[in-house]
Design a protein around this nucleic acid. Structure first.
Length: 584
DNA sequence: GCCGTTTTCGGCCCGACTGTTTTCAGTCG
Protein backbone atom coordinates (compact mmCIF):
# COMPACT_ATOMS: atom_id res chain seq x y z
CA UNK A 1 0.00 0.00 0.00
CA UNK A 2 2.52 2.58 -1.06
CA UNK A 3 0.81 5.95 -0.89
CA UNK A 4 0.51 8.17 -3.92
CA UNK A 5 3.06 10.95 -4.00
CA UNK A 6 1.76 14.29 -5.14
CA UNK A 7 3.74 15.81 -7.97
CA UNK A 8 5.93 18.87 -7.43
CA UNK A 9 4.68 22.26 -6.29
CA UNK A 10 3.06 24.49 -8.90
CA UNK A 11 4.97 27.58 -9.94
CA UNK A 12 2.16 30.12 -9.70
CA UNK A 13 0.38 31.80 -6.81
CA UNK A 14 -3.30 31.90 -5.84
CA UNK A 15 -2.81 28.48 -4.37
CA UNK A 16 -5.49 26.01 -3.44
CA UNK A 17 -5.20 23.74 -0.41
CA UNK A 18 -3.70 20.76 -2.26
CA UNK A 19 -1.13 23.22 -3.61
CA UNK A 20 -0.01 24.05 -0.09
CA UNK A 21 0.01 20.37 0.80
CA UNK A 22 2.39 19.50 -2.04
CA UNK A 23 5.12 21.76 -0.66
CA UNK A 24 5.12 20.00 2.70
CA UNK A 25 4.87 16.53 1.15
CA UNK A 26 7.93 17.31 -0.95
CA UNK A 27 9.84 18.46 2.12
CA UNK A 28 8.95 15.19 3.81
CA UNK A 29 10.22 13.17 0.84
CA UNK A 30 13.50 15.04 0.73
CA UNK A 31 14.06 14.85 4.48
CA UNK A 32 13.47 11.12 4.26
CA UNK A 33 16.24 10.71 1.71
CA UNK A 34 18.46 12.89 3.85
CA UNK A 35 17.94 10.38 6.67
CA UNK A 36 16.21 12.75 9.09
CA UNK A 37 14.42 11.89 12.29
CA UNK A 38 11.34 9.94 11.15
CA UNK A 39 9.10 11.85 13.52
CA UNK A 40 10.11 15.13 12.03
CA UNK A 41 9.28 13.69 8.62
CA UNK A 42 5.92 12.55 9.88
CA UNK A 43 5.23 16.05 11.19
CA UNK A 44 5.60 17.39 7.64
CA UNK A 45 3.45 14.63 6.19
CA UNK A 46 0.76 15.23 8.77
CA UNK A 47 0.84 18.93 7.96
CA UNK A 48 0.42 18.14 4.26
CA UNK A 49 -2.61 16.00 5.00
CA UNK A 50 -4.12 18.55 7.34
CA UNK A 51 -3.83 21.32 4.76
CA UNK A 52 -5.09 19.18 1.91
CA UNK A 53 -8.29 18.22 3.67
CA UNK A 54 -9.04 21.52 5.35
CA UNK A 55 -12.56 22.81 4.63
CA UNK A 56 -11.45 26.45 4.68
CA UNK A 57 -8.99 27.86 2.13
CA UNK A 58 -5.50 27.95 3.66
CA UNK A 59 -5.03 31.36 2.05
CA UNK A 60 -7.75 32.81 4.24
CA UNK A 61 -6.61 31.09 7.38
CA UNK A 62 -3.04 32.27 6.88
CA UNK A 63 -4.20 35.85 6.43
CA UNK A 64 -5.76 35.72 9.90
CA UNK A 65 -2.35 35.19 11.49
CA UNK A 66 -0.20 32.58 13.13
CA UNK A 67 -2.64 31.78 15.94
CA UNK A 68 -5.31 30.59 13.50
CA UNK A 69 -2.82 28.11 12.02
CA UNK A 70 -1.40 26.88 15.32
CA UNK A 71 -4.93 25.93 16.32
CA UNK A 72 -4.88 23.22 13.63
CA UNK A 73 -3.85 19.74 14.79
CA UNK A 74 -0.19 18.98 14.16
CA UNK A 75 0.65 22.58 13.22
CA UNK A 76 3.02 24.28 15.64
CA UNK A 77 4.84 27.58 15.47
CA UNK A 78 7.45 26.50 12.96
CA UNK A 79 5.01 25.03 10.45
CA UNK A 80 2.64 27.98 10.92
CA UNK A 81 5.46 30.34 9.96
CA UNK A 82 6.27 28.27 6.89
CA UNK A 83 2.62 28.28 5.81
CA UNK A 84 2.50 32.04 6.15
CA UNK A 85 5.73 32.41 4.23
CA UNK A 86 4.20 30.35 1.45
CA UNK A 87 1.00 32.42 1.49
CA UNK A 88 2.98 35.66 1.30
CA UNK A 89 5.64 34.73 -1.25
CA UNK A 90 4.53 31.54 -2.96
CA UNK A 91 7.91 30.06 -2.07
CA UNK A 92 9.58 28.30 0.83
CA UNK A 93 13.14 29.16 1.67
CA UNK A 94 13.61 25.87 3.52
CA UNK A 95 12.47 23.79 0.54
CA UNK A 96 14.71 25.73 -1.84
CA UNK A 97 17.70 25.00 0.37
CA UNK A 98 16.79 21.33 0.56
CA UNK A 99 16.49 21.08 -3.20
CA UNK A 100 19.89 22.66 -3.60
CA UNK A 101 21.31 19.99 -1.33
CA UNK A 102 19.38 16.93 -2.55
CA UNK A 103 18.44 16.41 -6.20
CA UNK A 104 14.62 16.64 -6.15
CA UNK A 105 14.31 13.96 -8.85
CA UNK A 106 15.45 11.40 -6.26
CA UNK A 107 11.89 11.45 -4.94
CA UNK A 108 10.66 9.51 -7.98
CA UNK A 109 13.01 6.65 -7.10
CA UNK A 110 11.10 6.10 -3.85
CA UNK A 111 8.21 4.84 -5.94
CA UNK A 112 10.20 1.87 -7.23
CA UNK A 113 9.36 -1.27 -5.21
CA UNK A 114 12.37 -2.35 -3.19
CA UNK A 115 13.75 1.17 -2.94
CA UNK A 116 13.29 3.11 0.26
CA UNK A 117 15.07 6.22 1.48
CA UNK A 118 18.27 4.44 2.58
CA UNK A 119 18.87 2.66 -0.69
CA UNK A 120 17.94 5.75 -2.71
CA UNK A 121 20.52 7.72 -0.80
CA UNK A 122 23.12 5.07 -1.38
CA UNK A 123 22.31 5.00 -5.11
CA UNK A 124 22.73 8.75 -5.24
CA UNK A 125 25.90 9.08 -3.21
CA UNK A 126 27.72 5.94 -4.30
CA UNK A 127 26.48 5.36 -7.85
CA UNK A 128 25.50 8.86 -8.94
CA UNK A 129 21.93 7.78 -9.67
CA UNK A 130 19.48 10.68 -9.23
CA UNK A 131 16.56 9.81 -11.52
CA UNK A 132 14.62 6.91 -13.02
CA UNK A 133 16.58 7.35 -16.26
CA UNK A 134 19.86 7.15 -14.35
CA UNK A 135 18.66 4.03 -12.61
CA UNK A 136 17.73 2.39 -15.88
CA UNK A 137 21.16 3.19 -17.32
CA UNK A 138 22.98 1.97 -14.20
CA UNK A 139 21.05 -1.30 -14.30
CA UNK A 140 21.82 -1.78 -17.99
CA UNK A 141 25.51 -1.20 -17.40
CA UNK A 142 25.61 -3.46 -14.36
CA UNK A 143 26.90 -0.65 -12.20
CA UNK A 144 24.86 -1.57 -9.12
CA UNK A 145 26.54 -4.94 -8.65
CA UNK A 146 29.43 -3.56 -6.61
CA UNK A 147 27.25 -1.65 -4.16
CA UNK A 148 27.26 -3.00 -0.61
CA UNK A 149 23.88 -4.46 0.27
CA UNK A 150 22.79 -4.75 -3.37
CA UNK A 151 22.89 -8.48 -4.06
CA UNK A 152 21.74 -10.07 -7.32
CA UNK A 153 18.22 -10.81 -6.08
CA UNK A 154 17.67 -7.25 -4.95
CA UNK A 155 18.99 -5.85 -8.21
CA UNK A 156 16.63 -8.09 -10.16
CA UNK A 157 13.77 -6.92 -7.96
CA UNK A 158 14.63 -3.29 -8.58
CA UNK A 159 14.79 -3.90 -12.33
CA UNK A 160 11.32 -5.47 -12.23
CA UNK A 161 10.05 -2.65 -10.05
CA UNK A 162 11.36 -0.07 -12.47
CA UNK A 163 9.64 -1.77 -15.37
CA UNK A 164 6.37 -1.78 -13.37
CA UNK A 165 6.78 1.87 -12.61
CA UNK A 166 7.41 2.61 -16.27
CA UNK A 167 4.33 0.81 -17.50
CA UNK A 168 2.27 2.59 -14.81
CA UNK A 169 0.89 -0.65 -13.45
CA UNK A 170 -0.13 1.53 -10.57
CA UNK A 171 -3.57 2.35 -9.31
CA UNK A 172 -6.71 0.84 -10.69
CA UNK A 173 -10.25 2.18 -10.66
CA UNK A 174 -12.56 1.17 -7.86
CA UNK A 175 -14.87 -0.84 -10.13
CA UNK A 176 -11.97 -2.82 -11.62
CA UNK A 177 -10.64 -3.51 -8.13
CA UNK A 178 -14.08 -4.72 -7.06
CA UNK A 179 -14.20 -7.18 -9.93
CA UNK A 180 -10.68 -8.46 -9.30
CA UNK A 181 -11.40 -8.97 -5.59
CA UNK A 182 -14.68 -10.74 -6.27
CA UNK A 183 -12.99 -13.14 -8.67
CA UNK A 184 -10.23 -14.05 -6.22
CA UNK A 185 -12.58 -14.46 -3.27
CA UNK A 186 -14.84 -16.69 -5.36
CA UNK A 187 -11.93 -18.84 -6.53
CA UNK A 188 -10.41 -19.24 -3.08
CA UNK A 189 -13.44 -19.39 -0.85
CA UNK A 190 -16.28 -20.20 -3.21
CA UNK A 191 -17.33 -23.61 -1.92
CA UNK A 192 -15.22 -23.85 1.22
CA UNK A 193 -17.06 -23.94 4.48
CA UNK A 194 -15.40 -22.59 7.55
CA UNK A 195 -13.11 -20.25 5.63
CA UNK A 196 -13.66 -16.55 6.06
CA UNK A 197 -12.07 -14.39 3.38
CA UNK A 198 -12.80 -10.67 3.31
CA UNK A 199 -11.58 -7.50 1.65
CA UNK A 200 -9.70 -4.93 3.73
CA UNK A 201 -7.41 -2.06 2.73
CA UNK A 202 -8.31 0.94 0.63
CA UNK A 203 -10.88 -1.08 -1.29
CA UNK A 204 -12.87 -1.51 1.92
CA UNK A 205 -12.49 2.21 2.56
CA UNK A 206 -13.85 2.68 -0.97
CA UNK A 207 -11.10 4.95 -2.20
CA UNK A 208 -11.64 6.08 -5.78
CA UNK A 209 -8.59 4.14 -6.96
CA UNK A 210 -6.64 1.42 -5.21
CA UNK A 211 -3.00 0.50 -5.43
CA UNK A 212 -3.38 -3.09 -4.28
CA UNK A 213 -5.90 -5.50 -2.84
CA UNK A 214 -5.70 -6.54 0.81
CA UNK A 215 -7.41 -9.79 1.68
CA UNK A 216 -7.78 -11.25 5.14
CA UNK A 217 -8.49 -14.88 5.93
CA UNK A 218 -9.31 -16.87 9.04
CA UNK A 219 -10.83 -20.23 9.96
CA UNK A 220 -10.03 -23.24 7.80
CA UNK A 221 -6.98 -21.75 6.13
CA UNK A 222 -4.79 -24.83 5.71
CA UNK A 223 -3.07 -24.70 2.33
CA UNK A 224 -4.64 -21.34 1.55
CA UNK A 225 -1.37 -19.51 0.89
CA UNK A 226 -0.22 -22.27 -1.47
CA UNK A 227 -3.51 -22.11 -3.37
CA UNK A 228 -3.35 -18.32 -3.41
CA UNK A 229 0.05 -18.07 -5.07
CA UNK A 230 -1.01 -20.74 -7.58
CA UNK A 231 -4.22 -18.95 -8.64
CA UNK A 232 -5.00 -18.39 -12.31
CA UNK A 233 -3.92 -14.93 -13.25
CA UNK A 234 -0.96 -14.72 -10.86
CA UNK A 235 2.04 -13.50 -12.79
CA UNK A 236 4.56 -13.39 -10.01
CA UNK A 237 4.89 -14.20 -6.32
CA UNK A 238 6.41 -11.22 -4.54
CA UNK A 239 6.55 -12.77 -1.07
CA UNK A 240 5.17 -15.82 0.67
CA UNK A 241 5.51 -16.74 4.33
CA UNK A 242 3.53 -18.61 6.93
CA UNK A 243 0.98 -15.90 7.60
CA UNK A 244 1.08 -13.67 4.55
CA UNK A 245 1.78 -13.62 0.85
CA UNK A 246 1.87 -11.07 -1.94
CA UNK A 247 1.39 -11.70 -5.63
CA UNK A 248 1.14 -9.63 -8.76
CA UNK A 249 -1.64 -10.45 -11.19
CA UNK A 250 -1.24 -10.45 -14.95
CA UNK A 251 -3.16 -7.17 -14.89
CA UNK A 252 -0.34 -5.63 -12.83
CA UNK A 253 -2.46 -5.38 -9.69
CA UNK A 254 -0.73 -6.46 -6.46
CA UNK A 255 -2.74 -8.62 -4.07
CA UNK A 256 -1.77 -9.20 -0.44
CA UNK A 257 -3.25 -12.01 1.61
CA UNK A 258 -2.95 -12.32 5.38
CA UNK A 259 -3.99 -15.31 7.44
CA UNK A 260 -4.86 -14.68 11.07
CA UNK A 261 -6.31 -16.74 13.94
CA UNK A 262 -10.01 -16.21 14.71
CA UNK A 263 -9.34 -14.51 18.02
CA UNK A 264 -7.37 -11.85 16.11
CA UNK A 265 -9.68 -11.45 13.13
CA UNK A 266 -11.31 -8.18 14.21
CA UNK A 267 -8.03 -6.57 15.18
CA UNK A 268 -6.46 -7.68 11.91
CA UNK A 269 -9.42 -6.37 9.93
CA UNK A 270 -9.08 -3.04 11.70
CA UNK A 271 -5.34 -3.02 11.16
CA UNK A 272 -5.34 -3.95 7.48
CA UNK A 273 -8.28 -1.74 6.57
CA UNK A 274 -6.19 1.29 7.45
CA UNK A 275 -5.67 3.96 6.60
CA UNK A 276 -2.15 3.99 7.89
CA UNK A 277 -2.79 7.37 9.51
CA UNK A 278 -6.01 6.21 11.14
CA UNK A 279 -4.14 3.20 12.50
CA UNK A 280 -1.35 5.32 13.91
CA UNK A 281 -3.86 7.57 15.66
CA UNK A 282 -5.67 4.55 17.08
CA UNK A 283 -2.48 2.92 18.34
CA UNK A 284 -1.50 6.17 19.99
CA UNK A 285 -4.87 6.18 21.71
CA UNK A 286 -4.22 2.64 22.93
CA UNK A 287 -0.82 3.61 24.22
CA UNK A 288 -2.29 6.59 26.11
CA UNK A 289 -4.44 4.08 27.95
CA UNK A 290 -1.49 1.88 28.79
CA UNK A 291 -2.53 -0.66 26.13
CA UNK A 292 -0.88 -2.04 23.03
CA UNK A 293 -2.68 -2.44 19.71
CA UNK A 294 -1.44 -4.57 16.83
CA UNK A 295 -2.96 -6.87 14.24
CA UNK A 296 -3.39 -9.63 16.81
CA UNK A 297 -5.47 -7.69 19.26
CA UNK A 298 -5.63 -5.03 21.90
CA UNK A 299 -3.43 -6.04 24.82
CA UNK A 300 -3.18 -5.07 28.46
CA UNK A 301 0.27 -6.48 29.19
CA UNK A 302 0.06 -10.04 27.91
CA UNK A 303 -3.70 -10.22 28.20
CA UNK A 304 -5.79 -9.77 25.06
CA UNK A 305 -8.78 -7.59 25.92
CA UNK A 306 -10.21 -7.35 22.38
CA UNK A 307 -9.49 -8.86 18.99
CA UNK A 308 -12.09 -11.24 17.59
CA UNK A 309 -14.45 -8.52 16.42
CA UNK A 310 -13.54 -5.15 14.98
CA UNK A 311 -16.24 -3.30 16.91
CA UNK A 312 -14.81 -4.67 20.16
CA UNK A 313 -11.45 -3.09 19.43
CA UNK A 314 -13.05 0.32 19.03
CA UNK A 315 -15.26 -0.23 22.08
CA UNK A 316 -12.27 -1.14 24.24
CA UNK A 317 -10.78 2.20 23.24
CA UNK A 318 -14.01 3.95 24.28
CA UNK A 319 -15.09 4.56 20.71
CA UNK A 320 -18.17 3.63 18.70
CA UNK A 321 -17.52 1.70 15.46
CA UNK A 322 -16.12 4.03 12.81
CA UNK A 323 -17.26 3.35 9.22
CA UNK A 324 -14.31 2.29 7.01
CA UNK A 325 -14.98 5.14 4.56
CA UNK A 326 -14.13 7.67 7.29
CA UNK A 327 -10.88 6.09 8.41
CA UNK A 328 -8.46 8.62 6.95
CA UNK A 329 -7.57 10.50 10.13
CA UNK A 330 -9.53 13.50 8.97
CA UNK A 331 -11.17 14.09 12.33
CA UNK A 332 -13.16 10.86 12.60
CA UNK A 333 -11.58 9.73 15.87
CA UNK A 334 -12.33 13.05 17.55
CA UNK A 335 -15.86 12.97 16.14
CA UNK A 336 -16.34 9.41 17.39
CA UNK A 337 -15.08 10.35 20.85
CA UNK A 338 -17.53 13.24 21.05
CA UNK A 339 -20.46 11.23 19.71
CA UNK A 340 -20.59 13.37 16.55
CA UNK A 341 -19.96 10.70 13.91
CA UNK A 342 -22.23 11.43 10.95
CA UNK A 343 -25.04 8.97 10.18
CA UNK A 344 -23.72 8.39 6.67
CA UNK A 345 -25.97 8.26 3.65
CA UNK A 346 -26.45 4.76 2.26
CA UNK A 347 -27.65 3.29 -1.02
CA UNK A 348 -31.05 2.62 0.55
CA UNK A 349 -31.54 6.35 1.14
CA UNK A 350 -31.35 7.19 -2.56
CA UNK A 351 -34.77 7.86 -4.09
CA UNK A 352 -33.86 8.94 -7.60
CA UNK A 353 -31.18 9.20 -10.24
CA UNK A 354 -30.69 12.58 -11.85
CA UNK A 355 -28.34 12.02 -14.76
CA UNK A 356 -28.89 9.43 -17.48
CA UNK A 357 -28.75 9.13 -21.23
CA UNK A 358 -31.05 7.26 -23.61
CA UNK A 359 -31.28 6.26 -27.26
CA UNK A 360 -32.29 9.87 -27.91
CA UNK A 361 -28.57 10.73 -27.65
CA UNK A 362 -25.66 8.41 -26.80
CA UNK A 363 -27.45 6.01 -24.42
CA UNK A 364 -28.16 2.39 -25.35
CA UNK A 365 -31.61 1.99 -23.81
CA UNK A 366 -34.95 3.74 -24.30
CA UNK A 367 -36.52 6.13 -21.82
CA UNK A 368 -39.06 3.47 -20.96
CA UNK A 369 -36.35 0.85 -20.32
CA UNK A 370 -34.51 3.28 -18.04
CA UNK A 371 -37.74 4.04 -16.19
CA UNK A 372 -38.53 0.37 -15.66
CA UNK A 373 -35.03 -0.34 -14.40
CA UNK A 374 -35.25 2.62 -12.03
CA UNK A 375 -38.57 1.40 -10.67
CA UNK A 376 -37.10 -2.04 -10.08
CA UNK A 377 -34.41 -0.37 -7.99
CA UNK A 378 -37.15 1.15 -5.88
CA UNK A 379 -36.66 4.74 -7.02
CA UNK A 380 -39.46 7.31 -6.85
CA UNK A 381 -38.13 9.48 -9.65
CA UNK A 382 -35.49 9.87 -12.34
CA UNK A 383 -34.45 12.64 -14.68
CA UNK A 384 -33.71 11.98 -18.34
CA UNK A 385 -30.73 14.15 -19.20
CA UNK A 386 -29.64 13.56 -22.76
CA UNK A 387 -27.01 15.87 -24.18
CA UNK A 388 -27.77 19.27 -25.64
CA UNK A 389 -26.79 20.14 -29.23
CA UNK A 390 -23.14 21.00 -28.52
CA UNK A 391 -22.07 17.42 -27.96
CA UNK A 392 -22.61 16.48 -31.57
CA UNK A 393 -20.73 13.18 -31.43
CA UNK A 394 -23.20 12.02 -28.81
CA UNK A 395 -26.19 12.93 -30.97
CA UNK A 396 -27.20 15.82 -28.73
CA UNK A 397 -30.78 17.14 -28.82
CA UNK A 398 -31.73 20.46 -30.43
CA UNK A 399 -34.85 22.35 -29.36
CA UNK A 400 -37.13 20.53 -31.81
CA UNK A 401 -36.05 17.02 -30.79
CA UNK A 402 -36.16 18.00 -27.12
CA UNK A 403 -39.77 19.11 -27.62
CA UNK A 404 -40.59 15.67 -29.03
CA UNK A 405 -38.78 13.96 -26.16
CA UNK A 406 -40.85 16.00 -23.71
CA UNK A 407 -44.00 14.63 -25.35
CA UNK A 408 -42.72 11.09 -25.06
CA UNK A 409 -41.91 11.55 -21.36
CA UNK A 410 -45.39 12.97 -20.73
CA UNK A 411 -46.85 9.88 -22.37
CA UNK A 412 -44.66 7.55 -20.33
CA UNK A 413 -45.65 9.30 -17.12
CA UNK A 414 -49.29 8.64 -18.08
CA UNK A 415 -48.60 4.92 -18.51
CA UNK A 416 -46.18 4.13 -15.75
CA UNK A 417 -47.10 3.64 -12.09
CA UNK A 418 -44.98 4.38 -9.08
CA UNK A 419 -42.25 6.42 -10.76
CA UNK A 420 -42.07 9.98 -12.00
CA UNK A 421 -39.87 10.67 -15.00
CA UNK A 422 -38.56 14.23 -14.83
CA UNK A 423 -37.89 16.11 -18.04
CA UNK A 424 -34.26 17.12 -18.07
CA UNK A 425 -31.24 17.95 -20.15
CA UNK A 426 -27.49 17.91 -19.83
CA UNK A 427 -26.89 21.32 -21.32
CA UNK A 428 -23.40 22.47 -22.22
CA UNK A 429 -21.89 25.51 -20.61
CA UNK A 430 -20.38 27.40 -23.53
CA UNK A 431 -17.11 29.25 -23.30
CA UNK A 432 -18.77 32.51 -22.30
CA UNK A 433 -20.90 30.86 -19.62
CA UNK A 434 -24.15 30.82 -21.62
CA UNK A 435 -25.98 27.54 -22.28
CA UNK A 436 -26.46 25.64 -25.52
CA UNK A 437 -30.27 25.79 -25.46
CA UNK A 438 -32.52 28.89 -25.28
CA UNK A 439 -34.23 29.90 -22.06
CA UNK A 440 -37.77 29.26 -23.31
CA UNK A 441 -36.80 25.65 -24.06
CA UNK A 442 -35.12 25.16 -20.70
CA UNK A 443 -38.24 26.60 -19.05
CA UNK A 444 -40.21 23.52 -20.11
CA UNK A 445 -37.94 21.19 -18.18
CA UNK A 446 -38.04 19.96 -14.59
CA UNK A 447 -34.28 19.58 -14.19
CA UNK A 448 -31.46 21.38 -15.96
CA UNK A 449 -28.01 19.90 -15.45
CA UNK A 450 -25.30 22.22 -16.72
CA UNK A 451 -21.88 20.77 -17.59
CA UNK A 452 -18.60 21.66 -19.29
CA UNK A 453 -17.41 19.41 -22.14
CA UNK A 454 -15.48 21.75 -24.41
CA UNK A 455 -12.64 24.24 -24.18
CA UNK A 456 -11.23 22.66 -21.04
CA UNK A 457 -7.94 24.53 -21.22
CA UNK A 458 -9.25 27.95 -20.20
CA UNK A 459 -7.36 29.86 -17.54
CA UNK A 460 -8.45 29.35 -13.98
CA UNK A 461 -10.05 32.77 -13.89
CA UNK A 462 -11.91 32.32 -17.19
CA UNK A 463 -13.17 28.86 -16.27
CA UNK A 464 -14.36 30.10 -12.89
CA UNK A 465 -16.26 32.99 -14.47
CA UNK A 466 -17.75 30.70 -17.08
CA UNK A 467 -19.13 28.27 -14.51
CA UNK A 468 -20.28 30.91 -12.05
CA UNK A 469 -22.25 32.59 -14.83
CA UNK A 470 -23.98 29.31 -15.62
CA UNK A 471 -24.82 28.77 -11.95
CA UNK A 472 -26.47 32.20 -11.90
CA UNK A 473 -28.74 31.25 -14.80
CA UNK A 474 -32.25 31.03 -13.30
CA UNK A 475 -33.13 27.81 -15.18
CA UNK A 476 -30.09 25.83 -14.08
CA UNK A 477 -30.73 23.28 -11.35
CA UNK A 478 -27.31 21.75 -10.85
CA UNK A 479 -23.71 21.70 -12.00
CA UNK A 480 -22.76 18.24 -13.32
CA UNK A 481 -19.33 16.60 -12.95
CA UNK A 482 -18.02 19.92 -11.65
CA UNK A 483 -14.26 19.48 -12.16
CA UNK A 484 -14.26 17.55 -15.45
CA UNK A 485 -11.65 14.98 -14.55
CA UNK A 486 -11.49 11.45 -15.91
CA UNK A 487 -9.74 9.19 -13.44
CA UNK A 488 -6.34 8.08 -14.71
CA UNK A 489 -6.90 9.81 -18.05
CA UNK A 490 -7.51 13.52 -17.62
CA UNK A 491 -6.85 15.85 -14.71
CA UNK A 492 -9.52 18.30 -13.53
CA UNK A 493 -9.63 21.61 -15.32
CA UNK A 494 -8.28 24.67 -13.56
CA UNK A 495 -11.02 26.34 -11.55
CA UNK A 496 -11.44 28.15 -8.24
CA UNK A 497 -13.55 25.56 -6.50
CA UNK A 498 -14.28 27.69 -3.44
CA UNK A 499 -15.73 30.34 -5.75
CA UNK A 500 -17.96 27.71 -7.37
CA UNK A 501 -19.16 26.62 -3.95
CA UNK A 502 -19.95 30.20 -2.96
CA UNK A 503 -21.90 30.74 -6.17
CA UNK A 504 -23.85 27.50 -5.77
CA UNK A 505 -24.65 28.32 -2.15
CA UNK A 506 -25.72 31.85 -3.04
CA UNK A 507 -27.90 30.80 -5.96
CA UNK A 508 -29.43 27.78 -4.28
CA UNK A 509 -28.03 25.39 -6.88
CA UNK A 510 -26.96 21.76 -6.45
CA UNK A 511 -23.53 20.33 -7.07
CA UNK A 512 -23.31 16.81 -8.43
CA UNK A 513 -21.31 13.76 -7.55
CA UNK A 514 -21.19 12.01 -10.91
CA UNK A 515 -20.94 8.46 -9.59
CA UNK A 516 -19.59 6.86 -12.73
CA UNK A 517 -16.36 5.17 -11.57
CA UNK A 518 -14.55 6.86 -14.43
CA UNK A 519 -15.43 10.28 -13.01
CA UNK A 520 -16.37 10.28 -9.30
CA UNK A 521 -16.62 14.02 -9.67
CA UNK A 522 -16.99 15.76 -7.20
CA UNK A 523 -14.39 13.77 -5.35
CA UNK A 524 -14.63 13.17 -1.61
CA UNK A 525 -12.64 16.27 -0.59
CA UNK A 526 -14.63 18.62 -2.80
CA UNK A 527 -17.97 17.11 -1.86
CA UNK A 528 -17.20 17.51 1.82
CA UNK A 529 -16.25 21.13 1.37
CA UNK A 530 -19.37 21.88 -0.65
CA UNK A 531 -21.66 20.18 1.86
CA UNK A 532 -20.02 22.00 4.76
CA UNK A 533 -20.78 25.24 2.94
CA UNK A 534 -24.44 24.26 2.85
CA UNK A 535 -24.67 23.26 -0.82
CA UNK A 536 -27.01 20.30 -1.44
CA UNK A 537 -25.28 17.42 -3.24
CA UNK A 538 -27.01 15.33 -5.89
CA UNK A 539 -25.59 11.86 -6.54
CA UNK A 540 -26.17 10.48 -10.01
CA UNK A 541 -24.83 7.72 -12.25
CA UNK A 542 -24.41 9.31 -15.69
CA UNK A 543 -25.92 6.02 -16.89
CA UNK A 544 -25.70 5.21 -20.59
CA UNK A 545 -27.67 1.96 -20.23
CA UNK A 546 -30.20 0.55 -17.79
CA UNK A 547 -27.55 -1.64 -16.16
CA UNK A 548 -25.50 1.46 -15.36
CA UNK A 549 -28.07 2.56 -12.79
CA UNK A 550 -26.22 0.12 -10.50
CA UNK A 551 -23.24 2.50 -10.54
CA UNK A 552 -25.08 4.54 -7.90
CA UNK A 553 -23.16 2.64 -5.25
CA UNK A 554 -19.91 4.25 -6.38
CA UNK A 555 -21.36 7.73 -6.01
CA UNK A 556 -22.69 6.83 -2.58
CA UNK A 557 -19.26 5.44 -1.61
CA UNK A 558 -17.66 8.80 -2.31
CA UNK A 559 -20.48 10.65 -0.57
CA UNK A 560 -19.80 8.54 2.52
CA UNK A 561 -16.10 9.33 2.29
CA UNK A 562 -17.19 12.98 2.18
CA UNK A 563 -19.05 12.53 5.51
CA UNK A 564 -22.44 13.15 3.89
CA UNK A 565 -25.66 12.29 5.70
CA UNK A 566 -29.05 11.90 3.94
CA UNK A 567 -29.76 15.54 4.85
CA UNK A 568 -26.89 16.67 2.63
CA UNK A 569 -28.08 14.66 -0.36
CA UNK A 570 -30.80 16.20 -2.51
CA UNK A 571 -31.92 12.92 -4.07
CA UNK A 572 -32.32 11.26 -0.70
CA UNK A 573 -35.49 13.36 -0.43
CA UNK A 574 -38.95 12.30 -1.56
CA UNK A 575 -40.04 13.78 -4.89
CA UNK A 576 -42.02 16.68 -3.46
CA UNK A 577 -39.17 17.86 -1.28
CA UNK A 578 -36.67 17.33 -4.08
CA UNK A 579 -38.69 19.54 -6.44
CA UNK A 580 -39.16 22.11 -3.69
CA UNK A 581 -35.39 22.30 -3.35
CA UNK A 582 -35.08 23.11 -7.06
CA UNK A 583 -37.64 25.91 -6.83
CA UNK A 584 -36.35 27.74 -3.79
C1' DG B 1 8.52 19.12 14.16
C1' DC B 2 4.71 18.44 17.61
C1' DC B 3 3.09 17.92 22.12
C1' DG B 4 2.06 17.95 27.43
C1' DT B 5 -3.97 15.99 34.31
C1' DT B 6 3.08 11.87 34.33
C1' DT B 7 6.18 16.04 30.83
C1' DT B 8 8.89 22.33 28.13
C1' DC B 9 12.40 17.33 27.34
C1' DG B 10 11.86 13.08 25.68
C1' DG B 11 8.87 10.72 23.89
C1' DC B 12 6.51 9.93 19.23
C1' DC B 13 2.82 2.60 16.27
C1' DC B 14 3.95 -1.97 15.17
C1' DG B 15 5.18 -6.50 13.14
C1' DA B 16 6.34 -9.64 8.88
C1' DC B 17 9.23 -10.64 5.27
C1' DT B 18 13.39 -10.26 2.30
C1' DG B 19 18.02 -10.31 1.14
C1' DT B 20 22.36 -10.15 2.44
C1' DT B 21 24.17 -11.29 5.94
C1' DT B 22 26.45 -14.33 10.18
C1' DT B 23 22.99 -11.12 13.63
C1' DC B 24 20.21 -7.55 11.14
C1' DA B 25 19.05 -3.40 8.20
C1' DG B 26 15.78 -2.06 5.05
C1' DT B 27 11.34 -2.12 3.12
C1' DC B 28 6.58 -2.54 3.36
C1' DG B 29 2.04 -2.13 4.81
Amino acid sequence: MKERRPSGPPACRAMDNPGYARFFAEIADLLEIRGENPFRIRAYRNAARTLETLAEPVDELASRGEQALVALPGIGRDLARKIRELARTGRLEFLERLKAEIPPTLVELLEVPGLGPRRVRKLWQEAGVVSLDDLEAALAEGRLAGLEGFGPTLIAKIARGLAERREQAGRVRLDAADRAAETIVRQLAGRRRGLRLVVAGSLRRRRETVHDLDLLATGCTRGLIERFVALDGVRETLAAGGSRASVRLASGLQVDLRVVPEESFGAALQYFTGSKEHGIALRRRARERGLRLNEYGLFDGERRIAGAREDDVYAALDLPPIPPELRENRGEIEAAEQGRLPALVSLDDIRGDLQMHTTWSDGRDTIEAMACAARERGYEYIAITDHGPTVRVAGGLDAARLARQIEEIDAINERIEGLRVLKGIETDILEDGTLDLPDDVLAKLDYVLATVHTRLALSRREMTRRIVRALRHPRVSALGHPTGRLIGRRPPYEVDFDEIVRAAAGEGKLLEIDGHPERLDLDDHHARRAAEAGVPIVISTDAHAAADLALMRYGVDQARRAWLTPDHVANARPLGRFLALLRR
